[in-house]
């Protein structure tokens, strides 16, 4: 793959975000926050009426998009800003766009990528950047 600045990565669609998967994720994260488990708590806090997906899961969708779009690449840096909530049952799409392709001195080529996650209304609920090391043959 001949990567160039401006290239769009193949989007990754998650449809729907399964509320049932927030339960094992709470165990994996060791995170008892009830906003991921109990819609009544979400209502009481005024955030909506459905359980809220764990923020790290949203990052995981974006990482999966990167891993699939750049096979063999190695993610070395990932920054995310959480802009909104993803609710159980929603459709989300992870996107990426190459910003730069660089070859640091004596190092393998790497991609700097803008990443974001959109909800079903097309609103960004997460944005950030990622750095991926390429195998030389991929640059």
């Amino acid at each position: 793959m001949n990567w160039k600045a401006g290239a769009s990565l193949e989007p990754l669609v998650v449809d729907p975000v399964e509320p049932e998967l927030m339960v094992p994720m709470a165990t994996i994260l060791d995170d008892p926050n009830p906003i991921h488990l109990d819609p009544e708590v979400v209502k009481e806090l005024g955030y909506g009426d459905r359980v809220i997906n764990q923020g790290p899961t949203n990052c995981g969708y974006v990482m999966n998009m990167l891993c699939r779009a750049v096979p063999g690449g190695q993610l070395i840096r990932f920054k995310a800003r959480f802009l909104g909530n993803v609710f159980g049952g929603e459709r989300v799409v992870a996107h990426g766009r190459v910003v730069t392709v660089t070859t640091p001195d004596d190092e393998v080529p790497q991609l700097e990528v803008d990443v974001w996650l959109e909800n079903g209304d097309g609103q960004k609920v997460l944005d950030g950047t990622a750095t991926i090391i390429l195998e030389s043959a991929q640059a």
Partner: peptide, 18 residues
């Protein structure tokens, strides 16, 4: 208190190796 619903603002990961 975690019962009051903390949320993630930002996350930054630097991976030196898998």
């Amino acid at each position: 208190a975690v019962e009051d619903g903390p949320m993630m603002g930002t996350l930054e990961i630097e991976l030196e190796e898998p």
